[in-house]
């Protein structure tokens, strides 16, 4: 069964007809040619497809495209404004925070989400005092990024990259 939807992807409105079974990830990759979000596990376990969905980091592999008609999606590809890399992207380069790069677009989008969540004062499982504003410590970053797997094991550089992008000396 088909439905017509409009998605704003990295600033551009795109209208398409999808089968109701199509995930948001397949709509992006297979229908719109937006291949920055990667399909790793396709079951919400690896985080490789992470995008910003209406501003918050989310997994398009676990979303039905038809349920997100009108959504605004930012992928890692859409983060750079006017040719300037996003601070998170620059920090990943500065800190050598990737090897093969397959998980990197998801890691970058997740990190952008993490920094916004910390800015809002959102706690995590690593937050010692739930009533205080969280700090961008190593443990906080590791916990908050735990939904993004890296088979190369670049975590040791991903954590300081996220801290750098968040303005923390690491």
């Amino acid at each position: 069964m088909d439905a017509e939807i409009t998605l704003t992807v990295d600033g551009a409105a795109r209208t398409l007809t999808v089968d109701t079974r199509t995930t948001l990830l397949d709509a992006l990759r297979e229908r719109l040619g937006v291949t920055s979000p990667k399909k790793g596990c396709d079951h919400g376990q690896c985080g490789a497809c992470t995008v910003l969905l209406d501003g918050d980091r989310a997994l398009p592999c676990l979303a039905l495209a038809v349920a997100h008609d009108g959504a605004e999606i930012t992928t890692a590809d859409g983060l750079a404004a006017d040719g300037e890399l996003h601070p998170v992207q620059q920090a990943f380069i500065d800190r050598d925070a990737f090897q093969c790069g397959y998980c990197t677009p998801g890691q970058v989008c997740s990190a952008v989400g993490v920094l916004a969540e910390v800015d809002r004062g959102w706690p995590s499982h690593a937050t010692e005092d739930l009533t205080a504003d969280p700090q961008l410590t190593h443990d906080e970053v590791a916990e908050r990024m735990s939904g993004n797997l890296c088979r190369c094991g670049a975590y040791v550089n991903i954590v300081p990259a996220v801290q750098q992008a968040g303005g923390v000396q690491a």
Binding site: D56, A58, S110, G113, V114, L130
Partner: peptide, 19 residues
């Protein structure tokens, strides 16, 4: 209700909790 905040934060991942 710290028990509820702690339980929620112990579950899933940031991406999943946002959804």
């Amino acid at each position: 209700y710290p028990v509820l905040a702690e339980a929620l934060l112990a579950g899933a991942t940031g991406q999943l909790r946002n959804t």
